[in-house]
Amino acid sequence: MSSREDETLAQAAVTALTGQLALAPKPGLPDPRDLGARALCRDHGSLRWSAKALAPGLAAMAAAARRTGEPTPGLRAELGAIGRSTEHSVGLAGGGHKGALWALGFLVAAAALDARAGAQDVAFAAKKLAAFNDKGAPRRPSRGSSISAKYGAAGARGEARAGFPHVRRAFEALTRSRASGATQAQARLDALLTVMSTLQDTELLYTAGPLGLRHVQAGARGVLEAGGTATEAGREALSALDADLHARAWSPRGSAGLLAGALFLDSLPVGTHTRLA
């Protein structure tokens, strides 16, 4: 049974995910502008609705971690079982968020291991959890793992086992952009673009191939090099990238889930925030 602390962590993670969904304009990704487009409103609306279905599973992950008290193979197996059950629940609620579920699940469980842990400690504990094999995982490779093997990309599993480097980079980008005077929304968009600029997104590799992936990465870097979304030049570059990706129907979905992880770390008590190595 989950405690109030577990439910608070789960709600913080869901709030991070819905906060990511609320950002606009997100190049190639669903955002509130879709609500005005008849063909896309169901997509964005269902994503907002199904995000709430993650809460019970994330609370159960936090409870399992709190009960176990340390990263162990047994806890990893329990998190895997809870995650697969939550995937089913989210599917019934409209689907989506698979990458975000696992990123947030590891981070929520890691945060539950130590209530005093800051962002750096949470990321390190999540890395230790992800290092264990999930013996209950399906033997059939997923599309993401197949694409990872084909192109040598880290994929979701590699990202977790490396301690979520792109989540940490996004977290640093958030704090850096805010310190330079960016608004909260601008800082979050800069954090998303920071992830997009280097992530080997398996969704993009599947739909656009290596050349398409590099095109998206270069576009994201172009926005940041123009000064980020707090500048006029950066906003113009973002608008061009957004139009380009929507026209090509290319979606950097992996980056969106990792941004949600960074927003969750950012929700931890301010006094626990430390620079991520």
Rank of each mutant, 00 (worst) to 15 (best):
M1L: 12
S2V: 04
S3C: 05
L9Y: 07
A13P: 13
A16M: 02
L17M: 13
Q20T: 15
A22T: 12
L23G: 06
K26P: 13
K26T: 12
L29W: 04
L29V: 08
L29C: 09
P32H: 13
R33V: 08
D34T: 06
A37K: 04
R42I: 10
H44G: 01
G45W: 09
G45Q: 08
G45R: 03
W49N: 12
K52D: 15
A53E: 02
L54V: 01
G57Q: 05
L58A: 01
L58T: 04
A59M: 07
A65E: 15
R66M: 12
R66P: 14
R67Y: 11
G69R: 10
P71V: 05
T72V: 13
T72D: 11
G74W: 01
G74K: 07
L75N: 08
R76F: 08
G83I: 01
R84H: 10
S89H: 04
L92T: 07
G94L: 03
G95P: 05
L113N: 03
D114E: 09
A115H: 08
R116T: 15
Q120F: 07
A123N: 06
A125Q: 08
A125C: 06
K127P: 00
K135D: 14
A137L: 07
A137T: 01
R140Q: 13
G144H: 03
K150L: 15
G152I: 08
A156G: 14
R161S: 04
A162D: 14
F164C: 01
R168E: 07
R168V: 09
A182W: 09
R188S: 15
L189F: 14
T194A: 03
V195T: 11
Q200R: 11
L204Q: 01
G209Q: 07
L211A: 15
L211S: 15
Q217N: 09
G222I: 04
L224G: 11
A226K: 02
G228Q: 09
A230F: 03
A233Q: 12
G234N: 09
A237S: 05
A240L: 06
L241R: 05
D242T: 14
L245G: 06
H246E: 12
A247F: 08
R248F: 08
A249K: 08
P252V: 13
S255G: 10
A256T: 10
A260D: 01
G261N: 03
A262K: 02
F264D: 00
D266V: 04
P269R: 12
R275S: 15
A277G: 15
